[in-house]
Design a binder for these strands. Structure first.
Length: 463
RNA sequence: GGCGAGUUGGCGGAGUGGUGACGCAGCGGAUUGCAAAUCCGCGUACAGGAGUUCGAUUCUCCUACUCGCCUCCA
């Protein structure tokens, strides 16, 4: 049996390439996770869902135990520090370090809740930057030793000019970027493009002892250090939002490739495009900024959010609209009803697998799902996309309320009305039931009442 | 300024060098006391221009427009 060939768009080559794992028995997947300073906004969820599907596909093709999925938590960050400091100044009776830990713990808990609601499987490892400070220091020290970095005024900088490939991932040249003048010039920098790997901390900031004094790591080094500790000097796929391509991933690559020149760092880079809301960039200033939790609290099920995400290919900008959410809900309700109580088939439909293998064509996979006629196959295939999972079906389940009394009453009124030709009482009860969210079906065979989309038992009419 | 993505019917969107998916909405019909649900049927869309070709929505070039990233940011 030949194994499905997965094709992926590799940011490094800017082409869709066949995916060939380094070791088919040990696939390694790294996704840049969140900085845990606050609730995840909707855009944060996109790479999570994209990678969740990739993870499912890889496990489907290579075997569940052959894939290791890592997603980090960035818990060293000035916004976290600021929150902790604010709590300290507001009279909190703990150390700054404890307040920071408290803030990151609560944010991670929220993150888990919200991503779980989207049906995203937890990664195999979720390393926290603060647990890998030693590894970062080791890597930085090594880079200084090999001449790729230098210490100055308590900082350690990466010497961008020492890495000939710098700019390869994001398709830009160091000279062009300097010409663009969007770089910070600092006295401790040899070159304006050099970036910080380690920076000093004052007493108001968390810090760790290092050969360069008490300080904290720059942003990029954590992924380099953690991926090395967990995966070694080469791994298969590294992902994140397209906005991370530069500078974050470019810098990671520079650090890692210089620190471990014998390795490749990441073979394939997968970047998802940005999210928009009703055709516009999501931003606080436009007032269209919201979190995953906001949507969930509005009663939009996580599965619906997931479906909307998957309708757009990850490499295209995705537009979140209320109308899409509405349509997604209709479709999912239909499928849930179709597959309720049905055992999923042994394997997913080839049409769905093929669509996903083609650079994660999730929209094509959904199209293929629509074409499936066998509910068991539909269910199994939807599972590959993380849809129609039983633990997510709760929202679509029809409320478990016995409507027999109302059905009987309606049937009686109808029978009587057939004689008297006065249908007003029938219509009155029917409308009341519809208002309560009940779907009313009357036919020659009799009356059938089904709880519908907005069913609210408290709105049922009195008898 | 640098880099990149996109433009398919009312909306969302798949896909293809030659019989124009699918979903939602809409319309007509069957059915129904009326509806709902269901079933049947309908729509003649691929930004514009030039080129390659027997033939292009699908390939090439140009133009227009939209959007994103380049700064903490997924």
């Amino acid at each position: 049996m030949t194994r499905t060939t997965i094709r992926l768009r590799n940011s490094l080559s800017r082409k869709v390439e066949p995916f060939v794992p380094i070791d088919p028995e040990n696939l390694r997947l790294y996704l840049c996770g969140p900085t845990v300073y606050d609730r995840a906004h909707l855009g944060n969820a996109r790479p999570v869902v994209v990678f969740d599907v990739l993870n499912r596909l890889l496990r489907h093709v290579y075997g569940a135990h052959q894939v290791t999925y890592v997603r980090n938590f960035t818990d060293v960050d000035d916004k976290i520090n600021a929150t902790a400091l604010a709590r300290k100044n507001a009279g909190a009776d703990s150390s700054l370090e404890a307040l920071i830990r408290e803030r990151t713990e609560e944010t991670i808990r929220w993150y888990h809740e919200d991503m779980d609601a989207l049906g995203a499987d937890r990664p195999d490892h979720e390393p926290r930057a603060t647990d890998y400070i030693d590894a970062m220091i080791r890597m930085i020290a090594g880079l200084i030793e090999s001449g790729h970095a230098y210490a100055a005024q308590g900082h350690v900088m990466f010497r961008v000019r020492s890495f000939a490939e710098y700019g390869k991932l994001s398709g830009r040249s160091v000279d062009d970027m300097i010409a663009g003048a969007r770089v910070e010039v600092a006295p401790y920098k040899e070159d304006p493009m050099d970036f910080v790997m380690w920076k000093p901390s004052d007493d108001e900031l968390p810090g760790w002892d290092s050969p360069w004094g008490r300080g904290r790591p720059g942003w990029h080094i954590e992924c380099s250090a953690m991926s090395y500790e967990l995966f070694g000097d080469s791994f298969d796929i590294h992902g994140g939002g397209i906005d991370l391509q530069f500078p974050h991933h470019e810098n990671e690559m520079a650090q890692s490739c210089c620190a471990h020149p014998q390795g490749d760092f990441a073979r394939y880079w997968l970047h998802n495009e940005m999210l928009q809301v009703e055709g516009k960039k999501m931003s606080k200033s436009l007032g269209n900024f919201f979190t995953v939790r906001d949507l969930l609290d509005q009663g939009i099920p996580g599965e619906v959010i997931r479906f909307v995400f998957l309708q757009t290919h990850y490499a295209k900008p995705m537009d979140w609209t209320a109308e899409k959410a509405r349509q997604a809900e209709v479709t999912l309700r239909k499928w849930h009803a179709l597959t309720a109580g049905i055992e999923p088939a042994a394997s997913a439909a080839p049409s769905v697998v093929d669509a996903l293998a083609d650079d994660l064509n999730t929209a094509g996979a959904i199209a293929a799902l629509h074409a499936l006629r066998d509910p068991a196959v539909l269910k199994a295939s939807a599972h590959l996309l993380g849809l129609l999972q039983t633990d997510m079906a709760g929202w679509a389940q029809t409320a478990d309320v016995d409507l027999t009394m109302w059905a009987d009453k309606l049937a009686d009124l109808r029978t009587a009305a057939m004689q008297t030709k006065d249908f007003a009482p029938v219509d009155a009860l029917k409308q009341a039931l519809v208002a309560a969210g009940v779907e009313v079906r009357m036919s020659k065979a009799g009356v059938e009442l089904l709880p519908g989309a907005g069913f609210d038992p408290s709105q049922l009419p009195e008898l």
